[in-house]
Amino acid sequence: MKAWRAMLLGAALVTVTAAGAEAPGIVVQDAALRAQPSTGAETVARLDRGDAVALGQRAGGWIAVRTRVGAQRAGWMRVWHVRRQHAADTEEGNPLLAGLKRFSRAVTGLFERGGGEPDTGNGQTVATFGVRGLDGGDIASAAPNAEGLERLAAARASPTDAKSYAHAEHLQRRAATVPGAGVSGAENWSGW
């Protein structure tokens, strides 16, 4: 009975999300599409990295997924097996995300190391981000910039600011245990 209810709920979620709350996404790791948000659930299909999908509602670490090519299938995947795509992920707006948009085994040649040579290592093709970074030497040898820090100090928020901002976004404080951090005085504690 429970299983049936769960299945109905799952089907309902996929239907609801299909009605409008879906977002385009892409599979970033070969993985199973499961009938329910559970590792023990039946495998509906096996999806490959690069497959285009529609992403729906989340349930914990699971997300409702519908395939966008071939036979239409719906089910659940772990959230890190897929990635959402944004309209803003254009070559101009964000070269890395544009690269992800084309993420596919068919275009592995597009993804190269920073130095330019193709990544032929373990087959885990990853996107290149070809701009120069900020390396440790830059920071270690940097002259202090007091003016920069003063500008940020001027942008500091008051607790009232932060609260009114959060309320405008309907953010609600909730209980969550903060784990300890070893020796440093952040032992288990719980406020709120």
Binding site: V28, T128, F129, Q172
Partner: peptide
């Protein structure tokens, strides 16, 4: 605690994983 979905961090890690670790920006 601040009301956000903590699972979002999995998306961040997925993105970081997609960038080559040797890429200059990374």
């Amino acid at each position: 605690r601040a009301g956000y979905d903590p699972w979002t961090f999995m998306d961040t890690l997925t993105t970081l994983e997609a960038v080559h670790p040797d890429a200059p920006a990374m």
